[in-house]
Design a protein around this nucleic acid. Structure first.
Lengths: 259, 259
DNA sequence: CGGCTTTTTGATGTCCGTCAATCAGTGTGG
DNA sequence: CCACACTGATTGACGGACATCAAAAAGCCG
């Protein structure tokens, strides 16, 4: 199963009539990225500042980043978490300024495409379709997160977050077992879920005691994925990514590198 | 000031290099819509069901609609509120199924564009750019709303909602004074802001007593817009839409029809 | 070993949810 | 024209989930 299959069969969310073009568009866009060098950023480094003019599009190659917006009172919201393979900011093709800042959560490898280059690529309708699909995916993720944050308590939010990350990592073939690396501090998790750091800590303890998930030192181990899905119940369960109940053996995590 | 100017001067959010194409794309897309008949839906009518296959794109012509997702336990989240002039669902060009359902909040006039027709239009790079811009605008609104909902208390959320609607209506030239029609029940407002109906009622009373905003029977009258902006402080204040302090004279509201 | 960040835990308060009853407005039909 | 039903809004009492404040413990690194 290579890149192509993934798009058309494993995630059948796209219109059949557009599938072929989308596939080609994805390849073309990827090719354009591959002509750019892999850049690197350390933890907490701001890769794309907020309000930066002519913001680039980026492809996460390795590591984790997040998009955030700051409020004048010093608080912030982490709007989205970015994983290897994610393409962020396709809308930068049309925007004068970026809305969010993009920050490396750990050591990050990424590629940049300047916006005029992207605009040029978008002249190809297949790439344009692909860009729409990428934008749509982000938008779907955001609105899902919105639902989580408005309707779930801290436990449900945590469950939904972990499950969401797990499913995304699975879909990208970056992990095969229910355990992975999550390079976020509890404060960052708090800023993502709209609760306080203190409450994140307490809630983590709770779900650990429930033998649902163990999160220790940025390593996530899902113990009972059924319970996890139950706790995050009601979310469009995508497609059930894992067929059977996950019985973990040894925690041997870490997010793999993107090909 | 007609349609064109608005895009380039009144809302200078788009990249200069793309401005001209965006403008043309907007015109072309609009033209395509204008070839379709104006349909009509009554209050509470589901215009686009959730999960509907081959979902169309729509242009709101008159009235207000909202996008929502239901949870299995019967609760729902109203993700976005749609006003006259809004184009919703450009990502339906690539999706096999719609994510949200779209419901008329009051008597609604709208136009539909089937997805294959949109795909065909997207072959024109200018329209593709315009579609990206539309998607970007929705995404910006959603993430702003996410920030509001995660960081503000009920009073702040209400303030942000009212202010957001006010600014959008102003920008579309649908109102000129700080008063407008909001055809949502308190329960719908609650589902949008992630609080309960009961608490919406209490909070409305509170901001009324503070002489900030009066909302009675679906008519919103902003009494002190400075206080409102202060209560919703910290949001990217767009451009300050109203230059001076709004001193209302007579409440004479109602959302105008789109040309 | 300091000095730093990150996590943990306790005590206390509050915003908001839940439950429940009442009220106002609108429409319906006898 | 007045019951009647129905939806939407209002208000009170009470409890709980989460925030805040504060301090200490645990990692981490030079």
């Amino acid at each position: 199963m290579r890149q192509g299959d993934r798009l058309s069969t494993t995630t059948p969310v796209y219109a059949p009539a557009a599938a072929e073009d989308l596939l080609l568009g994805a390849q073309l866009l990827r090719r354009a990225f591959l002509e750019t060098p892999v850049l690197s950023a350390d933890r907490d480094k701001v890769v794309v500042p907020a309000d930066s003019p002519e913001p680039p599009v980026l492809l996460i190659h390795r590591g984790v980043a997040y998009q955030s917006t700051a409020l004048p009172d010093g608080r912030r919201t982490i709007v989205d978490i970015l994983l290897p393979g994610d393409i962020v900011g396709v809308d930068h093709a049309v925007l004068r300024r970026s809305h969010h800042e993009i920050v490396a959560a750990n050591t990050l490898g990424y590629r940049l495409l300047p916006p005029d280059k992207l605009r040029q690529l978008l002249r190809d309708p297949r790439i344009a379709l692909r860009a729409m699909a990428l934008a749509s995916e982000v938008s779907r993720r955001t609105s899902r997160h919105l639902t989580v944050v408005t309707r779930f308590d801290a436990r449900g939010r945590l469950a939904a977050m972990i499950l969401g990350l797990y499913d995304r990592l699975r879909r990208q073939d970056l992990i095969s077992r229910p355990t992975f690396n999550l390079p976020l501090t509890q404060e960052q998790i708090a800023d993502h879920l709209g609760i306080t750091m203190v409450h994140v800590s307490r809630t983590l303890r709770r779900i650990r005691e429930e033998r649902m998930v163990v999160i220790d030192r940025q390593v996530v181990v899902i113990l009972d994925i059924a319970a996890l899905r139950h706790a995050a119940a009601g979310l469009s369960a995508d497609e059930q990514a894992a067929p059977g109940k996950a019985a973990i053996t040894r925690p041997e995590p870490l997010i793999a590198e993107l090909s």
